[in-house]
């Protein structure tokens, strides 16, 4: 009965889809909203607020910053929850414009799957969490353990490698979503829960008794997580890359959501701040945006440090330390290329 509607929509879609796929930015401005792929639910990183029906979290903040830079409105984002299985196809098929879903930057994803990683917003590594009652102090003691893993991630492969290299046996219990993995682990259906260390901390914070569980010291892999876009549209890739860099640089330069209005009002002493905030030079135009793009991106949720502190930092229940994710000036790895 609704065939007509479908046909109507199809005709409209066909007319609208005349534009070439290389112009993601135009598609987004025409549509008036950014389609951003996020996790279906991971505390601190991407979470649907039960009361407000609004998406919140560390990954979500990146989407909002990009939307603010391109469309001028941090709320102009359509969040598309994607599972591990569909995330890359959703991106490749154009269903989403960018993916901000704690996705590890790997060689084969970049080269073989034709994805473009635009930077790293979180340096992570795979860890293990066990109940303290088991008395395990090292991952090498885990011979014969039952391990809960989320399928479709690099964790699965790292895990197989780790246990094979150390010549110990284990029993994998593959699980679709983080929520179900948590349930299984809490009910003792598996001895160990493994995922990225940030994810472990996030999960642990939501346990009824977080103190009963310990995260083992071993980090068995490098997991650089970052937003990614399709191969082939470099203009769009640049916008996402430099929006992320703007957030990082803003923290380094001391630009916060509190002082940004003052700093952006008139050119100040620091030329790099001036270039970043568009009071000097024409960096925005080079990106195909206006001069205020970075101001809007930073105002959306604050600079990198503010986003971190607000969603996953030590003051939140998740309580992650900055660690590797501190600015390079503070001994971390965050290092934005210069705005010049």
């Amino acid at each position: 009965m609704k065939k007509t509607m479908m046909l109507g929509t199809l005709t409209v879609a066909a007319v609208a889809a005349g534009a070439a796929s290389a112009q993601t930015v135009n598609d987004i401005t025409d549509r008036g909203s950014l389609n951003c792929g996020v996790s279906t639910g991971l505390t601190g990183f991407a979470e649907l607020n039960q009361e407000t029906n609004r998406w919140e979290g560390f990954d979500v903040a990146v989407c909002r910053a990009v939307a603010a830079a391109v469309l001028g409105d941090p709320e102009a984002v359509t969040f598309v929850p994607v599972t591990n299985k569909v995330r890359f196809t959703a991106l490749n098929s154009g269903e989403i414009d960018m993916l901000a879903r704690n996705t590890t930057w790997t060689y084969s994803r970049d080269v073989d799957l034709k994805l473009e990683f635009t930077g790293i917003n979180y340096y992570d590594g795979q860890g293990f969490m066990v109940p303290a009652a088991l008395g395990v102090s090292s991952a090498k003691d885990l011979d014969g353990a039952t391990v809960c893993i989320q399928t479709g991630t690099t964790t699965e492969l790292n895990l197989a490698d780790f246990f094979r290299v150390n010549n110990i046996s284990y029993e994998p219990v593959p699980i679709e979503t983080a929520a179900e993995a948590k349930q299984q682990f809490l009910d003792g259906a598996c001895d160990v829960y493994t995922t990225d260390a940030s994810g472990l901390a996030a999960q642990r914070s939501s346990f009824p008794n977080p103190g009963d569980y310990v995260i083992l010291p071993e980090i068995i892999s490098k997991e650089p997580l970052g937003p990614l876009v399709r191969h082939g549209d470099n203009e769009w890739g640049d916008i996402v890359r430099w929006t992320l860099n703007a957030l990082i640089a803003a923290e380094e330069l001391g630009v916060t959501s509190a002082n940004i209005d003052d700093l952006a009002a008139a050119p100040g002493d620091n030329p790099e701040i001036n270039r970043l905030l568009g009071t000097e030079g024409g960096l925005g135009e080079m990106l195909g945006l206006d001069a205020d793009w970075a101001v809007r991106a930073i105002k959306a949720g604050g600079n990198y440090g503010e986003i971190f502190a607000q969603n996953i930092g030590e003051a939140t229940p998740i309580g992650l330390a900055r660690g590797l994710n501190a600015q390079w000036t503070n001994g971390g790895l965050l290092y934005s290329p210069p705005f010049r």
Partner: peptide, 25 residues
């Protein structure tokens, strides 16, 4: 299963993942 938030999807996704209602199955 393909990550649409229908009744089962919204339970398995946001509701079971939420901090408040974790463990309510």
């Amino acid at each position: 299963v393909i990550s649409m938030f229908d009744l089962v999807g919204i339970i398995r996704g946001p509701i079971l993942a939420s901090t408040e209602w974790n463990g309510v199955y």
